[in-house]
Write a protein that binds this DNA or RNA. Structure first.
Lengths: 146, 146
DNA sequence: TTCTTATATGATAATCATTATTAGTAAATA
DNA sequence: TATTTACTAATAATGATTATCATATAAGAA
């Protein structure tokens, strides 16, 4: 994982390049994204922003995340049940390992995935632009708790 | 792909085993699922049912699909934007190849996925129960249309 | 520093897919 | 064919996300 400060600078730079203003609320949200180890939800980010900016609206959080998503600086991990999560540290497609018990999300190493994608493109003629790979299971911590 | 008639029988049998009634609406929905080549949406299924049963309610379609999902006879491919699709032919996790232009969904062969899953379980200690693998791109048809 | 103005915010209303409710209907069994 | 009770149809409710718009403010210019 990149250094959070560096990551924050990258995101701020991207905003400036696109002539977007650096507001206190935006900066606070970017900080949360850059410094978060996990994969926070909208609600989670909202709660954290409100510590420093209690009047922040939920709509602002949605709008900022949508903006960063468009600028390819945040990866949205959307689930069908609406429990979306966000990753501001690795804003490119990568596999996830998700514990269905404690909701923890881990980023595993899967070097063979690139080979698999290339093979698939060759076999099917598709031009592959993106992917989404999630494994669901029980993490070691939760297995031990039983 | 299995023979649609056989697949239909399997699903009807599963309903009977679980003491669920075989109503005309349910049978119609099961037929659509068994005979569909693609991966129909809720709306798509709803439109098809209404050809034979014009008074069918959308809620009935939702309830039948939820039921079949619980009985593990239908796979729900849910997307964050709400554009869910259903697969009654291969109701177990498998990779998808999705055209972002025409929305076509293809089931590719990826034999290495099983190896990958096992490797991952070994490396991380997770007990992996399920997975979801989607590749997004442009299908050969859409590439040629340009 | 102050001014200017387009952009961002906050509060709330609107949207829309899905779920819950409920009175009435009909499948299954004897 | 009668009885039981799960199922259906119609509609209301829900809840996450998006749109609206008056107000506030970031950032460049004077």
């Amino acid at each position: 994982m990149a250094d959070p400060e560096t990551r924050l600078d990258q995101m701020v730079k991207k905003l400036k390049e696109n002539e977007c203003r650096i507001t206190p609320q935006r900066l606070a949200i970017l900080k949360i994204l850059a410094f978060s180890e996990g994969h926070p939800s909208i609600e989670n980010i909202y709660e954290q922003v409100k510590v420093d900016f209690p009047t922040t609206s939920l709509a602002t959080v949605y709008k900022t995340l949508t903006l960063m998503k468009e600028l390819k600086e945040v990866l949205e991990i959307g689930f069908a049940d609406g429990s979306n999560r966000y990753d501001g540290n690795k804003p490119y497609p990568h596999p996830h390992l998700i514990c269905i018990n404690c909701r923890k999300i881990v980023d595993p190493d899967l070097t063979t995935l690139a080979d698999m994608t290339q093979q698939l493109a060759q076999d099917t003629g598709f031009r592959i632009l993106n992917h989404r790979l999630d494994f669901f299971g029980i993490c070691p911590d939760c297995q031990n708790k039983k």
